[in-house]
Design a protein around this nucleic acid. Structure first.
Lengths: 199, 199
DNA sequence: TATTATATTGAATGAACGTTCAATCAAAAG
DNA sequence: CTTTTGATTGAACGTTCATTCAATATAATA
């Protein structure tokens, strides 16, 4: 028989493979239009095998949404660490996020998944909990930076949280925009958006 | 027996009633998580009766998406008519749109429906056609106004279409933001957003 | 090679759902 | 009151789908 280490590795690889295909399917079609058959076919395995690795379709979905929210929060957390003035943080964040939108399918999938989940009341309860738990952090974090910048006089005077809302709705909107027009779309220059927040 | 006029009126009223409930359901849950049973129950009628008025669930959905896109285009079209300088048009549009986001559930439902439909590849082909046909007009229209304002030196210099993208992604993002936090959320002041476009 | 444990398959199951349909109801017209 | 026509109901039908399961394959170990 196989030893435990090998088994664990195979198991982990298969799980990742299934998750990777499921992310694509969910991002494009959402939870309810994505069929287990779709995921199995995309992964090149039998339908039944999916249930060897996951309890249910919902479970896969919940895990994916969790990962998506975590990924976003992690990125935001890194922003805290960087040694920059607040207004430079905002500038850098916008530049990096727009660059990522242009280059990374992965990030766009993350945005699509979160947007769908956020915009539907039909998602599993567990997903709703994750969202209430994790969705606010990016807003809070950006709001903090905005407030700090206001202290220094480099960020425009307005409710910091409202500025954060504008920040994220713009970024998110652009990601979805890019996602839904396949191919050549021109994402606005970072300086345009930056201008919205700096004095 | 009833005369034809009465029948037509009853028929029209019922259709509207079904559509009104379907809009709510679709806006909250999307096409695939909304069941015919849900719509029938919300409308207080038997499931079967829906098929006396509509050919299929998809048909209802397509009609609703069509209405949503038309409503948006109509609003944009009215903007053309107003006698104002380009930068005043942008200012007024932002003010009115933000006011509408704060007050009108109807508008928010429209935004949700369009966002969902745009963000999914699983929607009916007929819906996809409607979107490709009608979705670009608001962008074009705002881009035109931006370009005109640039001629007058009142709108910031940048690709007009990119400005339009920024315009709509912000508005749309805010509408979705409001939709998904039930109750008290503070929508940013119109002046903040206006500042993004004016010189 | 025989054994054992897990991976994998594909068919079976059962529930949910969209749609159809036969039967009944309601109301106006004769 | 009777007829006629469309509105309405609720059960029935057929399909799709998530999930389960019995059977088979694989590969490491003894």
């Amino acid at each position: 028989m196989r030893n435990q280490k090998q088994n664990e590795r195979i198991r982990e690889e298969r799980k990742e493979q299934i998750l990777a295909e499921a992310v694509k399917q969910f991002a494009h079609k959402g939870l309810f239009a994505t069929k287990i058959k779709d995921i199995a076919e995309a992964a090149g395995i039998a339908q039944g095998l999916i249930y060897h690795y996951f309890k249910s379709k919902e479970d896969i979905y919940v895990e994916i949404i969790k990962d998506a929210l975590d990924k976003l929060n992690e990125a935001v957390y890194m922003l805290q660490e960087i040694q920059l003035r607040p207004h430079e943080k905002i500038k850098t964040a916008i530049e990096e996020l727009l660059k990522t939108i242009e280059s990374s399918d992965n990030f766009i999938q993350t945005c699509r998944l979160i947007a769908q989940a956020t915009n539907s009341t039909a998602i599993p309860d567990k997903t709703k909990e994750l969202i209430t738990e994790k969705q606010d952090l990016p807003y809070q974090e950006i709001a903090k930076i905005m407030a700090a910048g206001q202290q220094e006089g480099t960020i425009i005077k307005a409710d910091p949280y409202e500025l954060a809302v504008l920040f994220w709705t713009s970024i998110n909107g652009l990601a979805i925009y890019k996602a839904t027009r396949q191919g050549a779309v021109s994402i606005p220059d970072a300086r345009l958006l930056t201008r919205l927040f700096l004095t």
